[in-house]
Structures are given as structure tokens and as C-alpha cells.
């Protein structure tokens, strides 16, 4: 825990609790499922070709 605490000094103090909460929320986060066509349509065209 000591080693990972270094970042806390580099951001504004009031962000720290938010980021810490997000770190634990992200651990519980379900993996991203499939994405909608509407979302995928926003990708750059070149990338769309690669992912489809």
C-alpha cells in the first residue's frame, strides 16, 4: 500500500477520495459487454474496419 500511495501527492487533495473510491469501484466493475452499433458508429472509419 505504501508503494502505490505515491500518486496521491501529485493530484489536488480533494480529488484523492474520489479517485480512491473509483479505484475500488473499478475493481468491482463488470467487464464491458458488447457495444451498440450506435456507439461503434462513432469510431474512426479505419478502426471500424479493424474491429469488424
Amino acid at each position: 500500500a505504501m508503494e502505490t500511495a505515491g500518486w496521491e501527492a501529485t493530484v489536488p487533495a480533494e480529488w484523492v477520495p474520489v479517485i480512491n473510491q473509483d479505484i475500488s469501484r473499478q475493481r468491482r466493475q463488470a467487464p464491458q459487454g458488447g457495444l451498440s452499433d450506435a456507439y461503434l458508429a462513432g469510431m474512426p472509419p479505419k478502426r471500424m474496419k479493424l474491429t469488424q
Partner: peptide, 14 residues
């Protein structure tokens, strides 16, 4: 209208 609920944050991130 067309996105998935789980993408609510991703639409704006993109």
C-alpha cells in the same frame, strides 16, 4: 434512443 444503458458514460467519453 440507440445506445445501451451501460454506454451512458462512453458516449460522452468518445
Amino acid at each position: 434512443a440507440n445506445g445501451y444503458p451501460s454506454e451512458v458514460d462512453m458516449f460522452v467519453a468518445q
